[in-house]
Amino acid sequence: MFTSGGPGVRELAVQALSSVERGYDLLAPKFDRTPFRTPDRMLDAVEEALARREGSFGAGLDVCCGTGAGIGMLRRLCRGRVTGVDLSAGMLAQARRAHGDEAYGDGGGAAGRVDFVRADARALPAALADTYDLAVSFGAFGHFLPAERPALFAGVRSALREGGLFAFPIGAPIPLRSPVWWAVAGFDAAMRVRNAVWRPPFVMYYRTFPPSGVRADLEAAGFTVATTPLEPFGRLPSGAPRWRLVLARRDDAAPAAPVTAAAAAERPVSGRAGRV
């Protein structure tokens, strides 16, 4: 599963017994040589869908950016500032090495700039409020418990300008008869046991982000929600897309539900540009 130079079994075990933030700090130097990095195929499909539907954007935000797999895509889609946000200092260090705090553009107009911010995705800094036209996230949602989604979505909404778009891929539900369902169910069960007997917890689950619950929480946070198929991934025998792109648009006419302080402060979360 791992390329040459990737982490060994001992390194992965140490990560799994650490907190989410510390675990990704340790894994960061070798993260891009694991299967957990978001595949270029997914990034390309999302970029194509956004460009086709929306054209270009002003400023872009990568929520839980990890080592910065999505930054190149945002640089191509966005004319202005591109920001990556993550709680793991180690992952951000790798992202900076790859993309720098650098200006970009064709020289024909105002250049954009890439920068990185260390922050909890559920409580983004006030300095980022009402700044971005597009926010994306890849492979990080397994690190958020269902009760944390309202704070996460409220934070992203606060960073977007009026009419701004929050876009992310989501897979079709896995049928119960599929071996994959049993594999991910086993993984989630093992993680629950690990977190019951070991501290600090390492929150990573595969079945805590169902499309219906996600839509409801986005709408409660003040988004209008649509989806579009990611056709490069094909369709199921039923005809349903294997992957969809969620398009959640900040709707200032829809009041956002309040987020309780308890939900927002339940635990620190670190994102990653991880497996999708």
Rank of each mutant, 00 (worst) to 15 (best):
Y24N: 05
R113T: 14
V20I: 11
V269T: 09
A119K: 00
H143A: 07
M191F: 12
A263F: 10
D40Q: 13
A89G: 14
G271T: 07
W181N: 02
D115H: 08
D101N: 10
S137Y: 00
V203S: 00
M191H: 11
R250V: 14
F187T: 06
R52I: 04
L145A: 12
L17T: 10
A185F: 06
E148M: 08
V246I: 12
F138N: 05
G90Y: 14
L128W: 11
L247F: 08
E102W: 04
M73K: 10
A119F: 05
W243D: 03
L12N: 02
G84K: 01
P232Y: 03
E102D: 11
R97A: 15
C64N: 10
D86M: 08
L236R: 12
S178D: 12
G108H: 06
E266L: 15
D120A: 03
L12S: 05
F153E: 04
R81G: 04
D217F: 01
A103F: 05
D86A: 04
G239P: 01
P237D: 02
V20F: 01
G274T: 06
R194L: 12
A16D: 14
L50R: 02
R161L: 07
A95R: 14
V246E: 04
A189S: 14
A261Q: 14
A129R: 15
D130M: 08
A103T: 11
G271S: 10
F144A: 00
I170W: 01
A51G: 15
M91F: 12
A89F: 07
G5Q: 13
R97L: 15
A59Q: 07
A273D: 15
F36T: 10
F2Q: 15
E47Q: 13
V14K: 03
T38R: 03
R37A: 15
E54K: 07
G60N: 12
T260Q: 01
A254G: 01
D40L: 15
S56A: 15
E162I: 06
S158W: 00
L230N: 09
H99T: 11
L152M: 08
V225N: 07
A240M: 06
G171A: 12
L43N: 09
A129P: 02
E102A: 15
